[in-house]
Simulated scan of single mutants.
Amino acid sequence: MARAGINKALVQKARDAVLARGENPSLDAIRIELGNTGSKTTIHRYIKEIEEAESTRLDDEQLLSKTLQEMVARLAARLREEANELVSAAEKRLKDQEAQWKQERERLEGLLKESGEKAHRLEQRLADSKSSLEQARAELQSERLQSQRQAQQIEDLEARLADKDSHLKSLEDKHQHARDALEHFRQASKEQRDQDIRRHEQQVQQLQAELRQSNQSIIVKQGELTQLNKDNARLASELGAARKQAGSQEDALRKSEQLVAALREQLSQANTNLSAKAKARDLYCEQLERAQLELKECAHRQTELEVALAEARTSLGHFKAAADAKGDLSGRPQPEEKSR
């Protein structure tokens, strides 16, 4: 229950005093203005009645008292100031976020450009790797052909060497046969001389009687011996020629062996070069695979950056639309219109 003396007029007076100070005429403020007296329920009822009565006269300024007109003007000015502050804050936030989105967009565009340049470099490296690989393949094919030619030359030289060995062996066999024949002739001559000496010793007593026959026999033997000496000289000459030919064959054989050794060394070097080319080809293949993987990663990264940039642009458009809507509600010009 309200204390005696608290009525609607006192509540009206206290409310006007609070409004005159520019304060909010709340229930507590009015009760404090009344000296903390009176029931809050009663004061609230009177405030409600006063507000309802004032609301019926707000449309007619002539019905308002000067104090209320000033209060309404101050409230309107305060509301405009607060609205301006809110709009200014919103504009500032919008500008800050626009600057932030612009920096983010520039950063994303920079990353996109960098990714494009890196992709271009990787494509160039890939093209260079392919060119090097093709060159290595061509060199490898050339080395293989050269190796095949050298292998064929070695086979031909080995065949020729085998022929030379066979011919040399045939000459050695002939030389051995000639030496065997000469030794057989010498042995036969020695045996023959021994037989003649024994026969001569046995027929000493018959020598005089058979001197003529013996002389004739000696003449025959001397002729045979001369023929044998001639045959021996001829065989010695053939043996010297055979030895010279064998020496020539041995020289040719040594030269052939040296040529075979040189060709084998060239073949070994070619095999070494072939192995190096194969390793280089494997290295180029690995570099090509790594470059392709890096190119795929850059393409994937570029796609992600493009999606992020599109999302950033969409978010910026939504934020601008929201800021424009706030500017329309506050009665202020839109930030874009103001900037224009």
Rank of each mutant, 00 (worst) to 15 (best):
S65E: 01
Q69K: 15
Q62G: 08
R31P: 01
E61C: 07
A73G: 08
S88A: 15
V11M: 01
S26Q: 02
E49F: 03
I32R: 09
V72E: 07
D60W: 10
A76T: 13
A76C: 05
H44M: 12
K48E: 14
R15S: 11
S26R: 01
K48D: 13
K40V: 14
A14H: 01
R15A: 14
R15K: 08
R21H: 03
Q69L: 15
T67K: 06
L19V: 05
V11Y: 02
D28K: 05
M71S: 15
S39H: 04
T42I: 12
R21C: 05
N84M: 08
E70I: 11
T56D: 04
L10P: 00
E51K: 06
H44R: 12
S26V: 05
A83P: 01
N24P: 08
R57E: 03
I30T: 00
N84S: 10
D60Q: 06
V87R: 07
K92R: 12
E49I: 14
R31G: 03
S55V: 02
E91H: 11
E54L: 14
V11F: 03
R80V: 09
I50K: 00
I50N: 00
R93F: 12
S55M: 13
R78F: 12
R74V: 08
I43T: 00
S55F: 11
I50W: 08
A29R: 07
L86S: 08
E85Q: 10
T41M: 06
K66R: 11
H44Y: 07
L34H: 03
N36R: 09
E54N: 09
E33A: 15
I50T: 02
L27T: 07
E54M: 08
A9P: 01
E52I: 09
P25V: 05
E70V: 09
E54K: 04
I47T: 01
T56V: 14
L79V: 11
T56L: 14
E49P: 00
E49S: 04
R45F: 10
M71N: 14
L63W: 03
